[in-house]
């Protein structure tokens, strides 16, 4: 279980991040935004939209694999790791400002996910003790 989470959540973050950055790339290459076929053709004529597609499909299969065992409440919260990675990469790639509030928010998300990680390893340890106690 532990290994599943340690591989699954970073993989989910990578796919989600790829999707978001690709959307941004595809969108900014297809400017101006218009509600017509020409805009759709500009979006789908650009290779980045396929990065978004790969990201979406990869994230879907990773998420469904994680949910086989992961509880939905904590797992959904932990999936927001993506917010931190997208923020850092946007600062680097698109020169979006890293404000104090954003950095503080990112640190809160990381602290929360650390708590969830500790909680899960405690749950795992408790579950491992139970059958031994019963037997």
């Amino acid at each position: 279980m532990r290994r599943l989470y340690l591989i699954g959540f970073p993989l989910l973050m990578a796919f989600d991040t790829l999707a978001q950055l690709s959307f941004k790339m595809a969108g900014s290459h297809a400017l101006p935004v218009e509600a017509n076929l020409a805009w759709l053709l500009r979006v789908f004529g650009h290779p980045w939209i396929y990065g978004a597609l790969i990201g979406y499909i990869g994230a879907f299969f990773t998420w469904m694999s994680l949910l086989e065992h992961a509880p939905i409440g904590p797992a959904f919260a932990a999936s927001h790791l993506e917010v931190v990675s997208v923020m850092l990469l946007s600062a680097w790639l698109f020169h979006e400002p890293l404000t104090l509030a954003r950095v503080a928010g990112a640190l809160l998300i990381l602290a929360g996910i650390a708590c969830l990680g500790v909680a899960e390893s405690r749950e795992g340890a408790a579950a491992a003790r139970e059958p031994a106690a019963a037997g």
Binding site: P74, A106, L110, A111, A114
Partner: peptide, 12 residues
């Protein structure tokens, strides 16, 4: 953990 993530997302 869940509340920290939630507040973090709101602050971002």
């Amino acid at each position: 953990g869940m509340l920290l993530v939630s507040v973090g997302v709101a602050v971002v």
